[in-house]
């Protein structure tokens, strides 16, 4: 009993120590940003962006790292208008429609003229800050002749396996679902059935699928065109490559927005503008491993020249996605649910 008391004391003390620093500097305004956790990780864009923005904003930038874009939106739904967030960074266009429906967001007030994203998404509430094309990434040591097109992958004999993600639980999974839908429309279900013999497994998230690739368990995985850049830059390895599909690649655009209930509206707007400034755009490619949505201050690292540049971008507008997501997921389940 005594040891229990002591340990709860220790935990209490640890908890106080952990939350203590947050209350220290209250004189400056604090801008609270909800984002996904890889954004705030030591190696993510968060620390550098915080440093740069704080240099002349006269404020403290506070990141809250949640699991992913879906988790951020759900957190806002749970909190409603009592949310502490001033800004949200890390929704993607597929969530935009639902996010607007919460009524929690205010028009950005930011001039998005410098932004150019494939697919042409543009919005007065959400500001695109980076994007990436979905792509099949393969292990060139295992696979000497990868399928040259999505069609070749779908109509393959099933000897070349791919791991994909589940649209019910993950963003890339939903991306692949939309990719097939954008390309094949009503034939998508049949195409999924054809593809199924090449699908080794469907994982709950990106980490599991990519783990299968790097483990050597599967030669292909659904990821991004930018994935090889990580291996090129951080590991000096060109083993993992993306395949350019002539049919086109579906694009994921990541957006940021500010909350209507924020007490620091001007500061929030300033932060959104900062996100698409050359200074901030410079940080994103090699920390968030996505393509910059606006001009960078310096040219992209050489490794980005080696990446697949899709000739054609596929994109479905947020309203269509929001309206059909459930039905399309059911169709997918039906096609693959053996």
């Amino acid at each position: 009993m005594r040891s229990m008391f002591l340990s709860s004391l220790a935990l209490g003390a640890a908890a106080t120590a952990l939350v203590g620093p947050a209350t220290a500097a209250e004189t400056k305004p604090t801008l609270t940003v909800y984002t996904y956790e890889s954004f705030v990780a030591d190696w993510g864009p968060g620390p550098q962006i915080k440093k740069d923005f704080e240099r002349d904003c006269g404020c403290t930038l506070d990141f809250v790292g949640l699991e992913d874009g879906v988790a951020i939106l759900n957190r806002l739904k749970l909190e409603g208008d009592t949310t502490k967030a001033d800004v949200v960074v890390g929704l993607d266009t597929n969530l935009v429609s639902e996010a607007k429906a919460t009524g929690l967001f205010a028009p950005s007030g930011v001039d998005t003229a410098p932004v150019t994203v494939p697919g042409g998404f543009s919005d007065d509430v959400f500001v695109p800050y980076d994007y990436g094309w979905f792509a099949v990434v393969y292990d060139s040591e295992q696979l000497k002749n990868p399928p040259a097109s999505l069609d070749a992958l779908i109509s393959g004999d099933g000897s070349q396996k791919i791991a994909i993600e589940d649209p019910r639980t993950s963003t890339p999974g939903l991306g692949m679902l939309l990719w097939m839908k954008a390309l094949y429309g009503d034939d998508a279900a049949q195409k999924w059935k054809d593809l199924s013999k090449s699908i080794l497994t469907v994982t709950p998230g990106w980490s599991e699928a990519y783990g299968l690739l790097t483990k050597g368990e599967v030669p292909m995985v659904l990821s991004y065109t930018t994935s090889p850049a990580y291996h090129l830059i951080e590991e000096k390895s060109d083993r993992y490559k993306a395949i350019a599909f002539p049919e086109g690649h579906y694009v994921q655009v990541e957006v940021a927005g500010r909350l209507a209930g924020s007490a620091h509206g001007d500061l929030a707007q300033r932060f959104l503008a900062f996100l698409i400034s050359p200074e901030a755009q410079d940080i994103l490619p090699t920390t968030n491993w996505m393509m910059p949505a606006a001009k960078t201050a310096s040219p992209l690292p050489a490794a980005f020249d080696q990446l697949v540049k899709p000739e054609k971008t596929l994109f479905l507008d947020p309203e269509t996605v929001a309206k059909n997501r459930r039905a399309w997921t059911d169709e997918w389940l039906e096609a693959l649910g053996r």
Binding site: I199, T201, V202, P204, E208, L212, L333, R338
Partner: peptide, 13 residues
């Protein structure tokens, strides 16, 4: 069980 079933289950079945 969740992650195991999805990852090793081979598909949404």
């Amino acid at each position: 069980s969740f992650t195991l079933v999805l990852t090793l289950g081979g598909g949404p079945g």
